[in-house]
Design a protein around this nucleic acid. Structure first.
Length: 565
DNA sequence: GCCGTTTTCGGCCCGACTGTTTTCAGTCG
């Protein structure tokens, strides 16, 4: 058997993007966008291309047709792609780098190369310093100085690339709160991939309705987090934050607020699909509204906009062109999990050196959120050894609850889980809950016992399949949310497709302002989780008499109505 | 190059902003 090269989805997406850029430079009209769309599609896949190719299903991926599927197959088979090599041979790498400078697109990069023989950013800088750009049509003083700082390297704030959503969450909330405090501002809301709950964001998009835009921009520019103002027009201002993140603020008319929210929430592919649907129905959609001819027929709210197109309102987390528009047209959108559906929190850690007061705080938070019960981690059993994470007084309060706090004891398991470990666990907490996967995934974890939750497993770099298999074998749920040790939305989709349930943290016991709960809920919703696909949600309705709750995994589609692509 | 509850061929989102322009091209999102 010939061993095949290991080519990840990200590798393939990278190749497709590079082809798109190169085709841009060649002057192709529509192919670049086709390749970019294919790249985005590949990036968002919940499983490896190798497996999909193995089933002969590459062409079922949106945006991938005959030509691109063949190129992907070649990449998977050989690790290289003749088509890309031929394009690279035509266009120097440096020209590609020119195009990535701010303010330089394919047209300009191509002109530098063809007309001026400039093959890269360094040569561009030399040409500028030598005065070779002076007098060239289209390059006046201002443009040249812009290019000079672009080739500085140190010029301007470097972009941090995509940033994890939990990192930007606090600053995004702070900015929106500050804008809402401006007296002339009526509404202020986040749009973009932040609103869609994506794992990471490349920039922030904020929309406001306000009496006097100038006034809002003044406040915005002077926010403490803002480092520089990049551009400012009558309706739009772009700034860069201290950490380099770009933030776009747009002021829109109230009549257009819904249309603008729809437009700027995206995703791009969702919007393209929506506008093409509108065109089919003789309508036009833009950020100002839905139009029949010159008449605006919708725009104030998103419900109005989707409604005018004959669609149900689509939750932002589903707007990725994965079949949600058809689902909205046929009334088959899932009813996604909401914060108010959460009835318990099965996995709460106290701070390292907890006092009874900390516990009371958890109890009172739980009460505020109307949670029925909270599982507090009291100990870890590793290789048969018990390590307490709570002092005696706290334990006493958990194990012999006095009021209606609904506290339950949770024991985490690590390492080898044998009979001795289980006896220890059962003596501590009859309703043992959490297994912490810290190293290799063990076998025979359950042995007929109840493991409610696999936690501390997953995260951006984690391998999902072994955890999913373990969870299936013992009938446990997996925890979704930000950071290492939790499933992101893509992994959660895989889990739900395998018939698993998710556990969604409520934020109880977290520091004030922690984004964990909001981000986790967004991930669960992006994965398409409904209430009955969530371990700690309240039951949708009273179960039939005699029915018992089961902790084993059910059929493939349990609690799941994710639209198919 | 992809795609199709009108299409297997003929379309392909669209507007803001900038800089260089006498009405627009390029970039960006």
């Amino acid at each position: 058997m010939v061993s095949e090269p290991v080519v990840s989805n990200a590798d393939v997406a990278g190749v497709l993007s590079e082809i798109a850029d190169l085709l841009d430079l060649v002057g192709e009209r529509f192919k670049p966008e086709a390749y970019r769309r294919a790249a985005r599609s590949v990036e968002a896949l919940p499983e490896g291309l190798g497996a999909i190719a193995g089933r002969g299903e590459l062409r079922s991926i949106p945006g991938i047709g005959e030509a691109i599927s063949e190129k992907i197959a070649e990449l998977l088979r050989t690790g290289t792609l003749g088509y890309l090599e031929r394009l690279r041979a035509q266009i120097p790498t440096g020209v590609l780098e020119l195009m990535r400078l701010p303010g330089v697109g394919p047209k300009t990069a191509r002109r530098f190369w063809v007309e001026l023989g400039i093959g890269g950013p360094r040569e561009l800088r030399e040409a500028i310093d030598a005065g070779r750009l002076a007098g060239v049509k289209g390059f006046a003083e201002k443009k040249i100085s812009q290019l000079r700082s672009a080739t500085d390297g140190a010029g301007g704030t470097p972009s941090p690339g995509r940033v994890p959503i939990e990192t930007v969450w606090p600053v995004a909330q702070a900015i929106v709160a500050a804008l809402r405090n401006v007296p002339t501002v009526r509404e202020a809301a986040m749009a973009g991939s932040f609103r869609r709950g994506r794992e990471s964001v490349g920039d922030l998009d904020i929309l406001v309705t306000a009496e006097a835009p100038e006034n809002v921009f003044d406040v915005f520019s002077r926010l403490p987090q803002v480092r520089e103002v990049r551009l400012r027009g009558p309706t739009k201002e772009t700034v860069v934050l201290d950490q380099g993140l770009q933030v776009d603020l747009r002021v829109v008319e109230p009549e257009s607020f819904g249309a603008a929210m729809q437009y700027f929430t995206g995703s791009k592919d969702h919007n393209v699909r929506l506008r093409s649907l509108a065109r089919d129905r003789g309508l036009k959609v833009n950020e100002y509204g839905v139009y029949r001819g010159d008449e605006r027929i919708a725009g104030r709210s998103e419900e109005e906009v989707y409604g005018a197109l004959g669609l149900a309102w689509i939750p932002p987390e589903l707007r990725e062109d994965r079949g949600e528009i058809v689902a909205a047209a046929t009334g088959s959108l899932p009813r996604l999990i909401e914060a108010s559906d959460l009835a318990t929190d099965p996995h709460v850690h106290l701070r390292p050196d907890p006092a009874v007061d900390d516990l009371e705080l958890v109890v009172s938070e739980a009460r505020t959120r109307k949670l029925r019960s909270v599982g507090v981690v009291i100990a870890t059993v590793r290789d048969g050894r018990t390590r307490w994470t709570a002092p005696a007084a706290v334990l006493d309060r958990i194990l012999r609850p006095t009021g209606d706090g609904g506290l339950t004891a949770v024991v985490e398991l690590e390492g080898v889980v044998d009979d001795r470990a289980w006896r220890e666990v059962e003596s501590l907490a009859p309703e043992c809950a959490v297994y912490a996967v810290t190293g290799e995934v063990p076998r025979d974890l359950g042995k007929g016992r109840t493991v409610r939750l696999i936690a501390h497993a997953g995260g951006p770099a984690a391998s999902v399949a072994p955890v999913v298999n373990l969870a299936r074998s013992v009938g446990a749920a997996v925890e979704v949310g930000p950071g290492a040790g939790r499933f992101d939305s893509t992994a959660a989709r895989v889990a739900l497709d395998s018939g698993l349930r998710l556990s969604v943290p409520t934020g109880v016991g977290e520091p004030t302002g922690s984004p964990t709960a909001s981000v986790a809920l967004g991930f669960a919703r992006r994965a398409g989780a409904t209430r009955d696909a969530v371990l700690n949600a309240r039951a949708p309705a009273a179960p039939p008499r005699g029915a018992t709750e089961t902790t084993t995994s059910g059929g493939r589609s349990r609690g799941r109505a994710r639209p198919r692509r």
